[in-house]
Write a protein that binds this DNA or RNA. Sequence first.
DNA 1: AATGAATGAGTATTCATTCAT
DNA 2: CATGAATGAATACTCATTCAT
Lengths: 184, 184, 184, 184
Amino acid sequence: MRKETQTLIFHAAANLFAERGYDGVTVDEIAAKAGVSKGSIFYNFGSKEGMYESLLREGVTTLGEHTRQAAANLTGEEALRALTQTLLEHIRDYPTIAKVIATEMFHLGRDWREVMSPVRSESLAVFEGVISDATGNPNCQIQAMSTFGATLLAGLEWVVFEPDKSLAEVHEGVWSTIRAVLQP
Amino acid sequence: MRKETQTLIFHAAANLFAERGYDGVTVDEIAAKAGVSKGSIFYNFGSKEGMYESLLREGVTTLGEHTRQAAANLTGEEALRALTQTLLEHIRDYPTIAKVIATEMFHLGRDWREVMSPVRSESLAVFEGVISDATGNPNCQIQAMSTFGATLLAGLEWVVFEPDKSLAEVHEGVWSTIRAVLQP
Amino acid sequence: MRKETQTLIFHAAANLFAERGYDGVTVDEIAAKAGVSKGSIFYNFGSKEGMYESLLREGVTTLGEHTRQAAANLTGEEALRALTQTLLEHIRDYPTIAKVIATEMFHLGRDWREVMSPVRSESLAVFEGVISDATGNPNCQIQAMSTFGATLLAGLEWVVFEPDKSLAEVHEGVWSTIRAVLQP
Amino acid sequence: MRKETQTLIFHAAANLFAERGYDGVTVDEIAAKAGVSKGSIFYNFGSKEGMYESLLREGVTTLGEHTRQAAANLTGEEALRALTQTLLEHIRDYPTIAKVIATEMFHLGRDWREVMSPVRSESLAVFEGVISDATGNPNCQIQAMSTFGATLLAGLEWVVFEPDKSLAEVHEGVWSTIRAVLQP
DNA sequence: AATGAATGAGTATTCATTCAT
DNA sequence: CATGAATGAATACTCATTCAT
């Protein structure tokens, strides 16, 4: 029954954290929403931080896999379009995690650095790869981060303030902004 | 002596908040770092939230003024370059506030929406104005946010992880990414 | 397999309790050290207190039997020497239980009075018997407790802080301290 | 007002700890009995353990001072009688601390070793000094501990189970037990 | 006989806020 | 203006105990 309980807790926690952030949520609330006892949360995750970390790690891993798969076997414009589109899809499908990642990206709040660094290194590496490949410029961290930032903030703007826009519309807007990045 | 005390508190608080976020900092710590009594903080700012709000508001206002001034009397590429350059300068000069703003932008944690919305509406409005002016497209919120996001995250990456790069270098990177946004 | 499990638990528990006291040990720890499940402890002993009580009772009973046997058929100096020597041997062989008994003797912590009183009444009775017999003084509880205390603390000092000393040495030290107790 | 509050807490805590031991007492109870808020306890002592440690330290220090003063300028039988009498008086006047010391002496329960070691080294040193002086035997730790143990346990037996006996009576009992320790 | 996931009452601790001085 | 001792509501975490398997 362990697995079911963990899933129950996971979902409840993810939603609450996305709504109100780490410190805005109490363990009691999570327990109540998950329909389990408070003790069960500690039995299964050890601590509130442990649970949040699980959540982050899961989100980060999934994001990494998605983007890596998206760019696989593609190059140039095709690759970058796939990348940004996937990132936007991810933000739409897991807005919870996306917001949390945006918040923790420059490690404010508590110290999840250890968990977050894969996002920067891995996620950015994919962007960097595609860009340096197309431009012949191996030194393009700034461009990679710019591209990532353009997509991330546009995506969040979309899901938070303009959820009625379509993915295509948003992607078009992002793309028209950053398309020049590939030109040498 | 009112003014001096407030300044003392302001600086201490800004640094601590930038490092560890709102909930990661206690009023005792701020008092200790500022070298004033705890009571003094409440005497001067009313509450912890009040103080944070002051901080945010100040940061947001200053940022708005800088960017508005930067773009004044300019159009097209010149205007956008001035905008992004100014934003990067601002991040360099007030990294503290910049980090806090980035964190609160999509209002995780507590709800500073009321204080933050000016950043979005005002700051974005400037970008939107320049872009829609150049492209003739009045519907360019996504582009505005993308441009803003590209500059913001690149700027933070710069001050946090690659502080040795020069402003020119960073701006060049950002610009090469987003320059197409102005083409119709 | 009932008996083996109980023995496993018994040993693990005794060592842990001796090290860290009743409240310093969790049932999980005992289970882990014994290599059995937590449920098994409750299946076999009913409760944590029940287990501790078993432990105490066993220790107290064994000690009582040893000392009673040691003094049987002896009188005067011979009897008292046998008594103190046996007590020291007991402390050496069961330091665990000895420490626990010393701790609970004046019942701090929880209330094991009911379990502990036999130690006082029985153990002391043997000392009292020997002393009153030799001195003709029927009112010698204080002497009995002094003799007991002298031996007990010397024994603990021995096993805890000076384990290299020999039994003979220690006994000689104790005896030279208390030998006058038998003189009328 | 700091001092008064601390005194209030100190007294309440000492009594409760003596009655029910460290783990048997909650901070809420102490606060209630002292008539202060729970927060005040943490403001003044930092933690429950911190408070207990203060208590122990104070008790240990006082005991050390008393015994050292008692034996000052005396030698032989006079010195030892003064020592044991003072120890008994101390147990009578501060039964609380005496019980706690007896319990912690061989460091069961939590780890107050650091606080307790002075009792062993200092208190025992006084006994050792007097005994080795009288007997010419420099190697008399066992005798010192025996003497101390005889007095301590007799004293506790007295205050806990036979409080009607007089100090003189008890001291006579102890002395008749251990007087031989000074004979070479 | 044995297990271990789940429970919930109980507990220490934190911290923004107040207020008498 | 400024202080810091005092507060108490809020919160994370512990752990003996139960029970379905």
